[in-house]
Design a protein around this nucleic acid. Structure first.
Lengths: 213, 213
DNA sequence: GTAGTAACCTACTGTTGCGTAACTTACGAC
DNA sequence: GTCGTAAGTTACGCAACAGTAGGTTACTAC
């Protein structure tokens, strides 16, 4: 009598945990939190539902573990990338690190961008990107003050940059004609760098609502 | 005997439809598509469930109407904003139009950024932002070619700009200390404009993975 | 007043999906 | 071999929710 699943029979607890994290990540990535059922995860892993509960306590537990690991991954990479070098090198390093993460773990990235369970949502923005932007904002605030720019505007730029990279990253993973990481990173970094470098001290609109100057 | 609801008793069909679109938008905005129940919408509107089915045929029907109206709103505003003026004026106009929309209809914006029902999802990116970026990409491709830049990179910049504005918009609606629209728009437009204006013809990274030059 | 109709309701069906209780199977130690 | 334990199963309780059938209320026209 043949085995029911493709190769993995009975697994040790740690191996099963690892497998469930992998499977869970991809299911959450493609369905979103709410639309994911524990049964589907169990089925794709070739086991039955209670095993998931045994290892992670439930849907939220598994989700929390998955998110936590992804955050570790991406934050680690970025922190390392910005740990040394000139400002421009750090900017490029961060962009490259981010996009490399996106490339290597598209599922994880998708989970981070998607909806969190209703119980953990603060506003609507996925917490990670928000935190990331806040950190960048802190760095910017300091630099802006030093350079004589309006420090209150720093968060705007921080969120703009994070949004830029995140959005491009998402488009890039879904795009068929995908240019190499270095290329994408260099374009983004150039845009951001030049933008910041040539920023006027006190930006103002040329046009005002309705009439032009 | 007091009326059960705060003021709206029996409504004409068209008024009820309008009310349900409003209520539905805010519920979808705060819960997301999957986590929203038709019952909650009905309850908040002060009516019972079958009325919703009578007017919109179901959850997806109502959702579709809401999304369609929001798309009309935002696209209309942006198209108008970029219809005339110098390139820089158009850029600023687009940023201002986008942010004004976000300010005036935060719920609608939230719906556009959130998950669509599983039945209509292509990839993972909400369709509107994707389309918007594609349109910007078309404009950029042409301009890049004229100016002697790498036209293949145009979509990267298009997505970067859209992501920038969308992300800042989201942060802005949730942020307590909210600067005025014009201020935010001017900062974003300045960043984007200066970035594009001073872009090298052939951007390259200073750093390469692991070693520095 | 009473007839007609548009707006609305109560009460149900069927399904899905989380989480759990209680039982079974493989496998190594001795 | 038989005993203990880790790994896994089937079968269920229970709640939420999409969608529907059929009845009820209030308003308008005359």
């Amino acid at each position: 009598m043949p085995k029911k699943e493709g190769g993995s029979g009975r697994l040790a607890a740690s191996a099963r945990r690892a497998q469930l994290v992998d499977v869970g990540r991809s299911v959450f990535a493609e369905r979103g939190y709410e639309a994911t059922s524990v049964e589907e995860i169990a089925e794709r892993a070739g086991i039955s539902k209670p095993i998931v509960y045994e290892h992670f306590g439930g849907k939220e537990g598994l989700y929390a573990v998955i998110v936590d690991r992804e955050v570790e991954h991406i934050v680690g990479r970025i922190v390392e990338a910005i740990s040394s070098g000139s400002p421009r090198e750090r900017l490029e390093g961060a962009a490259l690190a981010f996009l490399t993460y996106v490339k290597e773990r598209p599922g994880g990235f998708a989970v981070l961008l998607r909806d969190a369970p209703a119980s953990k949502r603060s506003g609507e923005m996925p917490a990670l990107m928000y935190d990331l932007a806040d950190r960048v904002g802190a760095i910017f605030t300091e630099q802006f003050r030093k350079a004589g720019y309006d420090a209150k505007a720093a968060p705007i730029y921080a969120h703009a940059l994070v949004g830029m990279v995140a959005f491009v990253g998402q488009w890039w993973t879904e795009s068929r004609k995908a240019p190499p990481v270095e290329s994408v990173a260099s374009h983004i970094a150039a845009l951001a760098w030049m933008g910041l470098r040539h920023l006027p001290r006190r930006p103002a609109l040329l046009v005002t609502e309705g009439r032009r100057t």
